[in-house]
Amino acid sequence: MMEPESKHKHVHAVFESIASDYDKMNDMISFRRHRAWRRFTMRKMDVKPGQTSLDLCCGTCDWTLSLAKASDKGKTIGLDFSRNMLDIGQAKIDKLGMGNQITLVQGDAMDLPFEDNTFDFVTIGFGLRNIPDIVKTLKEMKRVVKPGGKIVCLELSKPTWQPFKALYYFYFNRVLPLMGKWFVKRYEQYRWLPESLVPFPDLQALAELFRSIGMRNVKAYPLTGGVAALHIGTKGNEGV
Rank of each mutant, 00 (worst) to 15 (best):
P194T: 06
L209Q: 13
F170S: 09
V175Y: 04
G226R: 05
T160H: 06
P199V: 11
T160G: 07
V152L: 08
K142L: 02
N217M: 03
M215F: 13
L203Y: 04
K146A: 06
P199I: 13
R216G: 10
M215Y: 07
M215K: 06
W182Y: 10
G214C: 04
F170Q: 09
P163Y: 03
P147V: 12
F210V: 07
A220C: 10
L223V: 04
P201S: 08
L138S: 06
E155Q: 02
L206C: 07
T224P: 01
F164D: 03
C153E: 09
Y221C: 07
G180M: 08
G214A: 00
L206P: 14
Q204T: 15
A228Y: 09
P177L: 12
C153M: 08
L197G: 08
R174M: 13
P194D: 10
V144D: 01
R174H: 12
M215W: 05
L197D: 03
Y169N: 05
K146D: 07
P159M: 13
R191D: 14
P159S: 03
K219L: 12
F200G: 07
P177S: 15
V227M: 12
Y190V: 03
K142C: 01
P199D: 07
K181A: 14
W161D: 15
P194L: 02
M141Y: 04
D202V: 00
R143F: 12
R174Y: 11
A220K: 03
V218A: 07
W161G: 04
G148F: 14
G226I: 08
E140Q: 13
V198S: 00
S212Y: 00
Y190H: 02
L203M: 04
V227L: 05
L176G: 11
K158M: 09
L156I: 12
V198K: 14
L178Y: 08
M141W: 02
V175W: 13
K139I: 07
P194F: 03
R211Y: 02
T224Y: 12
P201I: 01
K181T: 04
Y171N: 09
G149S: 02
G180Q: 07
M215P: 06
S157F: 06
M179D: 10
S196F: 01
R211F: 00
Y187F: 14
L223F: 15
R216K: 15
R191P: 05
K150I: 01
R143K: 15
S212H: 04
G149N: 09
I213H: 07
C153A: 13
M141N: 05
L223K: 10
M215N: 10
K150L: 11
W161F: 14
R186L: 11
L156S: 05
A205I: 01
G148T: 15
R186P: 00
R211A: 15
M179C: 13
G148N: 10
V152Q: 13
V175I: 15
V145W: 04
L209C: 08
A220I: 02
I213V: 14
K142Y: 05
P222R: 01
E155C: 03
D202S: 11
E195P: 01
Q204C: 04
D202N: 14
C153W: 01
T137G: 11
R174V: 11
V145T: 15
E188S: 14
V227K: 00
G149M: 09
E195S: 13
G148K: 04
T137V: 08
L178N: 08
P147I: 09
I151Y: 09
L209K: 15
A207Q: 12
P159D: 10
G214Q: 06
N173A: 04
V227R: 01
P201C: 05
T137S: 12
S212N: 14
